[in-house]
């Protein structure tokens, strides 16, 4: 079954079985999530994508649901200006990148902050903790999130 949809801003048509998950098809047909192994139980957060701006675990989303919809993956998000601005804050805080989780963590955290722009530190801490990893980047991500929320809040005030 060939389905047309928008993947990271490009119109694509990918071939997949109705029983397959979005993750499986993206991985096989589009080379997305290369070298990533998610849990396939929707718990590890490593296969998350934005489906029409809503964050979903692609390992449990049936492929047929993406017809005529927009999918943004962490790889696609990396190309955006928002990512670069957020990453600059994290670099400034001293982010040591982890090969396994950094991209996913930033994607996950940013998606949450877009949805809940007033998120407090404790909320951010829980969101970051949803992606389990051994690396030591969590405190930096927490500080980065707080700065991002602060900056966004200041921008809103100045617009008013």
């Amino acid at each position: 079954m060939k389905l047309p949809f928008i993947l990271n801003g490009d119109d694509v048509t990918l071939d997949g079985d109705t029983r397959e998950s979005l993750f499986t098809v993206l991985h096989r047909e589009a080379g997305v999530f290369e070298e990533k192994t998610p849990c396939l139980k929707a718990t590890c957060g490593r296969c998350h994508v934005l489906l029409d701006s809503k964050e979903v675990p692609s390992c449990v989303v049936p492929f047929f649901q993406v017809r005529q919809r927009e999918v943004v993956t962490p790889e696609g998000f990396r190309q955006t200006d928002e990512y670069r601005r957020f990453k600059a804050i994290l670099d400034d805080e001293g982010l040591v990148e982890c090969a396994e989780c950094t991209d996913v963590q930033i994607f996950h955290l940013f998606s949450y902050l877009e949805l809940f722009p007033h998120a407090g530190p404790e909320e951010c801490r829980l969101v970051i903790g949803e992606i389990p990893c051994r690396c030591g980047s969590r405190p930096v991500l927490e500080r980065g999130a707080a700065r991002w929320v602060e900056r966004k809040g200041a921008a809103r005030v100045s617009r008013r």
Binding site: G94, G136, V140
Partner: peptide
């Protein structure tokens, strides 16, 4: 690099907690 040192120690703490 202080950030790397803190990162390594944080990683060690997580290892210990686990």
């Amino acid at each position: 690099d202080e950030a790397s040192a803190r990162n390594a120690l944080t990683e060690g703490v997580q290892m210990a907690v686990g």
